[in-house]
Design a protein around this nucleic acid. Structure first.
Length: 124
RNA sequence: CCAGACGGUCGGACGGCCGCGGUGCUUCCUUGCCCUUGCGGCAGGGCAGCGUCGAGGAAAGUCCGGGCUCCACGGAAACGAAGGUGCCGGGUAACGCCCGGCGGGGGCGACCCCAGGGAAAGUGCAACAGAAAACAGACCGCCAACCGGGCUUCGGCCCGCGGCAAGGUUGAAACGGUGGGGUAAGAGCCCACCGCGGACGCGGCAACGCGGACGGCAUGGCAAACCCCACCUGGAGCAAGACCAAAUAGGGGCGGCACGCAGACACGCGCAAGCGGUCUGCCGUCUGUUUCCGGACAGCCGCCCGGGUCGGUCGCGCGAGGUGCCUGGCAACAGGCAUCCUAGAGGAAUGGUCGUCGCCGUUGCCUCGCGAGAGGCGACGAUACAGAACCCGGCUUACAGACCGUCUGGCAUU
RNA sequence: UGGGGGAUCGUCUAACGGUAGGACCGCUGACUCUGACUCAGCUAGUCUAGGUUCGAAUCCUAGUCCCCCAA
């Protein structure tokens, strides 16, 4: 089954995902996840690249490659109703693309195995 | 052929597969409004299909100049503060930019570099060294002609009053330089040449250049020290600004309901129960510091209005525009004609990936050649700087490489 | 995006345009049986590149990096 992808844009959305502390780092990508628990099945995805990656050209290129990887992976392996944030790393721009996709898949599966409800409703 | 100078152009190509943004048309779905209720009209949204367009020479740094928008000011000018610019002429909407010229410096040369106004308006600065660092002065020195004194072997010697600024030393810099005359020794004291200043003449729009009577050396340096002079500048910035406009809270208005308890009444309506009215006491909150006393507010629901946040729309792509030709001009540039319309995103599109090729470097093999080398095939590596964010004119900085034109120096050949 | 400020030994700081000074740290030596304290000495710096000036940490220009403010 596949689900529609919606883009995360605002700072508050990124902070909400980061606040769950659920992340998985692989070569070329750090993936964060947060279950929204709002009944909407769509998968949210946001991309970010820090200045450590390089200049604007390098940052945009890293985000574009992550978008392509997310488009290939998340409709199959992403959990419905979950927001993901993909963080670019220094090697994102020149990792072979198949390797980048494999890393993305591995990270998505790893986050899917972890206890789901606890991570999302963690407002303590 | 080698080395170099200047100006300009480009800055990977093609093809699969999968995608993104704008826009036009079409089918379908959908929201709101309007009515003449119809596969109606208007405005908008969405999926899909087809067509079409989609980063740069610096998009960068944000160092200048403008457009545009809002704010301030009645208009204009002058003065002042603060900041900036600074040879002359021209170009430009404007500029700290560009072009041409002048002056100074560098290079054999093509050519390159220079914040390059004023130091006789004033204030100030120059460590150390040195006698002295800017109204000159005299440390080491030089002199013994004049005046005075002393000694004397009668040649002269010494001292004082003095004269001098040539020589020495230091320094980044020492009050013109060289030579000769002159003198007691000296000194532009005199002369020649050089340097400097320079009335005036000539050329040039001007900066300035050429000549130069005469002067007799004056006016040392620093203004990217303060400063003086001339000229320029109101402030903020598209996150400017304009419009539409949730939920919640609060403001204003209208309507409806509610408007406590007890007591009294000769009040109104009603047959009555009762409802309302007036008065007194009590109760809630706030307030005048407290009491007394006085004042104010009272709750709920619905609708409307204006402000306004999240959000959205516009601003936002026809312009000091590009290209070609002609005309004027040394040029920057200007004018005319023709022709073209060419990105508009919003965490931010213009790509991701694969293949083939090109280009460059290293290297291996083969062929040709006496040789320098040339060609072919392959392997590996590299393929730059960098992403519009309101727009335009400049400057600055970054950049693998490729190409074109003009010119200079050298070598060879004719 | 716009505005403002800064850069000096490893760290924190001084320095009218004239030899870059101090404190802490580090190292060496002395003192001590040893360590600490103390004393003496040493090492080490003007962000980068140009320019003005006789001379630049200082003045000017360009660049690099950092910090702060508004939204």
């Amino acid at each position: 089954m596949t689900h529609a992808l919606t883009r995360l844009t605002s700072r508050s959305q990124f902070l909400a995902v980061a606040a769950t502390r659920r992340k998985c780092a692989r070569v070329g990508v750090v993936l964060q996840a947060r279950a929204r628990n709002d009944g909407v099945a769509a998968i949210g995805i946001g991309f970010t690249a820090t200045k450590k990656i390089g200049n604007a050209v390098a940052r945009n290129r890293a985000k574009r490659r992550l978008r392509e990887a997310a488009r290939a992976v998340l409709p199959k392996l992403g959990l419905p109703g979950t927001d993901y944030v993909a963080v670019a790393r220094a090697e994102t721009g020149d990792t072979p693309f198949l390797q980048l996709i494999a890393a993305f898949e591995d990270a998505a599966l790893n986050l899917a195995r972890a206890p789901h409800a606890q991570a999302g409703g963690a407002a303590r």
